[in-house]
Each structure stands twice: as structure tokens, then as C-alpha cells.
Amino acid sequence: MKKTRTLFFVAVSVLLFSCKKDTTITKFPEEIQFVIPPGWASAHYDFSTNKLTTNGFILGRKLFYETKLSQNNAISCGSCHQQQFAFSNQYHALSAGVNGVLGTRNAPALSNLAWQTNFMWDGGITNLEVMPLAPLTNHFEMNETINNVVNKLQNDATYPYLFNNAFGTTTISSQLLLKALAQFMGMLVSSGSKYDKYEKGETSFSTNEMNGLNLFTQKCATCHTTPLFTNLQFMNFGLDSLFNDPGRAGITGAASDSGTFKVPSLRNVALSSPYMHDGRFATLADVLEHYSTGIVHSSTLSPLLNTIAPLTSMEKQDLILFLNTLTDSTFITDARFKNPN
């Protein structure tokens, strides 16, 4: 009974509002805007071809947390990409999809996607908008077809209405679904960490954090370049000499790319354990131990890692203290990014 009433209410309000332009129902504290943090380059993702609006963002967020996007209606993007872990998850090294089937790669944290040129560990996806097609149709992840998803949403009581709010049409298409998701994902900007405040002179670093920053600048920043903490390149970080997962070479077919993976951003890295493309390391200490003493040589190893001076335990500790300053507590608690359902 209650359901029918709400439905009726929705129908009536649609009838009342359907000819008007402004039909925002969800009240938002402020209009959604994409702001480039001071000092950052302009974004790679072009919002001019997908005009960001508050209604578009609201729809994208609802879709991000929508379990109807999966074949068994049980898994959403947000199941694997959880806000409290900077949109990664800590339960599985290899993310579990529908029916608990494990994939072969570790879910990365999501932030500052609008600046990225390539997505996935192997960079196989070159545009943020088409990114969701991969998990949606991946057998190990959501195992659904685009047509089914579009049909499910079209037959839902509220989605046609929300698409109308966002894009001015109740006819749902894969294109509008993807554009809405891109609006939400593009808005996931993390630039409020202690490190950012330090850079702006709003806070100071302890001596150890300072020391960690200096070590980082010397040893890590060529690959994990500020402000994104990635140079967006593909590198072999010395994990293996036999490559079960060919990494970038799986895309390019070039032997020189064997075992290279996208340099991950280290923003919020303290929250995004486990680490590496296959989730092999559980802690940041493990990662530093690898860097310090575990680099495996192979023909594609980055030359930067050929001769590494092992880190002292003091250096490791300071590096970890520095990496902790990349945690952005405003980002992981931002109410705009929360599950609205």
C-alpha cells in the first residue's frame, strides 16, 4: 500500500512538473561544480561534452550505488569501490563479483579520475565514460549486458524520472547511463589531505613527515609524481620476472611492455590496502620492504630500480608517516559521495 502511494505521488509530481524545466527534488546544499585545485593542470576529461549538473551528478551517484547494474541485482560499483576506503575495498585482494567469483586484479582506489588518461592496471580503457562497460559486462564482476541494464532501469519506477531531470528525456540509453556515471566519477576529487594543506602552508609537518617527504621526492616522485602521485605511465616495479599477468603488454602486444602496470596514484594509499595489481602486499611496510630488498630483475624492469640502496628502518618509518599524510578525510566523509539509497 505504502509503495503504491509513493508511486502515485511520484506519478502525480511528474505530471505536474514534466513540462517544466527545473524538477530538482533532491535538495542539495550547493550546486555541484567541478573545481580544479589551485596549481593543478586542467583535467583530461572534457566536461564540455557532458555538461555537469547537480541532477546529472545525483543520477550518477544513484547509479554508482545501484545493485540493478549487476546480473543478480546484488552488487553495485560501490560494493567494490567503498567510500571509507577511498573507493577501494579491503576485504578481498582480488575483488569478488557476482556469486563471489574472484577476478584477477585488485580494485584500485578511485580519485582524481578526471585527470587520468588511461584506466585499469593495464590502461586498456582510454575514456572515463566507457569505463563502466568493463565491470558491467565482466563475467567476474557484474556479469550483466548493457541492454538488460538499460531495460531494468527503464522499467524502474523512478529512473525514467531521474534521467528526465538530468538529461531532459525519459528514454534511457547506454550513452546517458554512462554520461551520468562519468559525472559522478569525475567529481571524485581528492585534494584535501594533510599533504595538500602543508603545500598550501596551512599546516606543518613533523620532522619525521618532513624527512619522509624528502625521501619520497628523491626515490619515488619520478613515478609517483605530484599532485596526482602518478606520472600516468606504465612501469615494471620489479615484482616478478615471469609475468602471469602480462600487464600493459596484453594491450599493446609489445614485449617491452611485459610486466608493466599503470603507476597507481598514492592518494589515500593508507586506506587502499591490499597493494599492487594483484593485491599481493597487505601493508605499506610490505611495499617498502619490496622496494628496499625485493626488487626482481627482468628485461623490462624500470631502470630507476636497477640499483636501490636498501632503506633503513628509520627511513621506512618516515616514508610511511609521509604516505599517511596523503589520506584525505574530507574526501572519504564527503556527504555528496555517500550512498543515497
Binding site: 586498456g124 580503457i125 575514456n127 572515463l128 565514460e129 566507457v130 562497460l133 548493457i146 547506454s174 554512462l178
Partner: peptide, 21 residues
């Protein structure tokens, strides 16, 4: 590489390749 397309380029038609998109 221009993002989500529609019409005859709709990825739902099964001609969009997810591996090196």
C-alpha cells in the same frame, strides 16, 4: 576514444571492444 556514443555506435550493439577500447 571520445567516450559514450549512441545510435549505431551504441556499445550495446556489441561492436565496442573493451580490451584496449
Amino acid at each position: 576514444f571520445s567516450g559514450a556514443q549512441t545510435g549505431d555506435l551504441d556499445p550495446a550493439l556489441g561492436m565496442f571492444w573493451m580490451w584496449d577500447t
